[in-house]
Amino acid sequence: MIACDAFRRHISPYLDGELLGEDRAEFEAHVSGCAACRESLEAERAVVEAIRRALPLHQAPPELRVWVEGIAARGRPAGPSARRGLRALGHPLVVAASLVACVLAGSALLREPGLRPSAARPSSAPRPAGAFAALAVDTHLRHERGQLPLEVRSEAPAEVSRFFEGRVPFHLTLPDYPVERGETKPYRLVGGRLVAFDGDYSAYVAYHMDDRPISLLVTAAERVRPEGGEAVVSGGLTFHIESRAGLKVITWTDKGLTYALTSDLAVAGNRSCMVCHGSAEERRKLEGL
């Protein structure tokens, strides 16, 4: 019989699966007959279980994730500035001409009267849009990878809108554009979910266009002030366009809401955006672009 003190040194390796063979059998035999050691074992097991139940303890911030994925995509750091990658995120980015398509899509969508905010609740000064855009990209990527399931799945805008009702601190009604007889909508609403941002929930809405994912993250305008990237003015609104983690993200504010549109659209033309979202009036406004 080994003394209890010696046995108690085996408690941690036993719980961690590191006590094997005869040592393990001996330990179990002792514990089965020793109430004090059994109590010590259960006490430590309770701590191990408490930690296990609390996992994951930490998750990397979206900005950091975007930075890491960016450097991973490049393979190697771009240079000394890469060491301060988070600060580099705000640098102006070259905007591809194809992004105009996304701008138009966003513009037409936000100009739809159905997207209307409720009275904004009082808040502190809005934050710059960097964190919001990073969150939009992070959420888009996670959803695309199947890591972030939607909480409502429906192609019906009314149903997805109902899901957000009372769950987000603003009113959001997704538009439902009619199509002509025989015409097929080139985009499809997939669903939505809540995403935590700035101490409350924002609305994440997922679409597919030609089987390519497009997403919209929406929050109250008083929380985020769009800025950075390349500013493009259209229809009286200013869109901020930038690239993050290989995706295009556009942020803008309209009628009390701030939006971040994320997609990998590279070659989509203006036609698709206007067909999807634009009324005749909206198309005229966008022709100038």
Binding site: A36, E39, E42, A43, A50
Partner: peptide
């Protein structure tokens, strides 16, 4: 365990119920 135990006893809803609730040494 020492750091977590007071919390478990002070908050019945707390998910950190440590088993057993006593000190563990005879």
């Amino acid at each position: 365990r020492l750091a977590l135990a007071p919390r478990a006893s002070a908050a019945p809803r707390a998910p950190l119920t440590l088993v057993p609730g006593r000190g563990g040494r005879s």
